[in-house]
Design a protein around this nucleic acid. Structure first.
Length: 222
DNA sequence: ATCCCGAGGG
DNA sequence: CCCTCTGGAT
C-alpha cells in the first residue's frame, strides 16, 4: 500500500477512479432493456442474481408483457414461471405487478424521476432507485451499493461499515458527486472481472499498490 | 458451501 | 439489529 495515499482521502479517490477508468473503459449498466419500465423490472429481478441470468429471462417476459399495463394485469403464476430462474420469484413477481400498478395509478404509467417517488414503489429501495435514476435520467441522489460495491469499498478501505445504507453514506462523503454514477459501474465491473468475492486477482489488479487489502503487497514495502 | 447489480418485515 | 425469500453457477 502506497503510504502517501491514505484510504478514503481525496487523492486516493482520484487515483482509484483514474485507474478504474483505464482498466474498464467499457463499464456500463449490463442489464438489457428497451424502456425505463423494463429497466425497473430488470433491476428488481437482479436482486441476488447475476445480470447475465436476468438477461436470459427478461426477453420472454417483455415479449409476453410489453407494456406497463400488461405487467400490472398479468397472471401472477405466469410471471412466476417466467422469472423463476432469477430466484425469489414469488416476491419479485409481486413487486413487478404492484410496482406496475402503482406506476399506472400515480405516475401515468411512467417511471418517475424523483428518488422519493421511486422509493414508494414496492420492491424498490435505494439500490434499485439509484440504478434506475442514474441510467434513465442521468441523475444521482446517491450511489448504487450492490454486493460488488459493498465488497470493494470495504477492501479498498473506503468504509468500515457493512450496512449498505451506511456504506453509501460513506462513499457519498468522499466521492465527488459528478462521479457517483460512474464509480458504481467501475466498481461493479472491477468486482466481476478482478476483485471477485472468492478469489480476488490481486497480482493482476491495477489497484494493488493503493489497496490496503492487496494480498502479498504489504510485505514488499516493509 | 458460497455467491450473484436486495428488499421487507420482525 | 436480525431473519426470510429462491435458483443457478462455481
Amino acid at each position: 500500500m502506497n503510504e502517501e495515499l491514505s484510504p478514503g482521502s481525496a487523492a486516493h479517490v482520484v487515483e482509484l477512479i483514474a485507474r478504474l477508468r483505464a482498466a474498464h473503459p467499457d463499464a456500463h449498466c449490463a442489464l438489457d432493456y428497451e424502456t425505463p419500465v423494463q429497466l425497473l423490472v430488470a433491476t428488481i429481478l437482479s436482486a441476488q442474481c447475476t445480470d447475465e441470468r436476468v438477461n436470459l429471462t427478461t426477453p420472454a417476459l417483455f415479449a409476453r408483457y410489453p407494456t406497463v399495463e400488461a405487467l400490472a394485469a398479468a397472471e401472477p403464476l405466469e410471471i412466476e414461471e417466467l422469472v423463476r430462474p432469477t430466484g425469489f420469484y414469488h416476491q419479485k413477481t409481486r413487486y413487478i405487478r404492484e410496482s406496475a400498478a402503482r406506476l399506472l395509478a400515480a405516475y401515468g404509467g411512467e417511471v418517475p424521476p424523483a428518488m422519493d417517488e421511486l422509493l414508494t414503489l414496492p420492491g424498490v429501495a435505494r439500490k434499485t432507485a439509484n440504478v434506475v435514476r442514474g441510467e434513465v435520467f442521468g441523475l444521482a441522489d446517491g450511489i448504487t451499493v450492490d454486493t460488488h460495491v459493498k465488497r470493494l469499498a470495504a477492501r479498498l478501505g473506503l468504509t468500515a461499515e457493512t450496512d449498505p445504507v451506511k456504506v453509501e453514506r460513506d462513499l457519498m462523503a468522499i466521492i465527488p458527486r459528478d462521479s457517483w454514477i460512474e464509480i458504481a459501474h467501475l466498481l461493479i465491473w472491477h468486482g466481476r472481472r478482478v476483485c471477485t468475492a472468492r478469489k480476488p486477482a490481486c497480482p493482476d489488479c491495477p489497484l494493488n499498490d493503493v489497496c490496503p487489502s492487496a494480498a502479498g503487497q504489504q510485505a514488499v514495502e516493509q
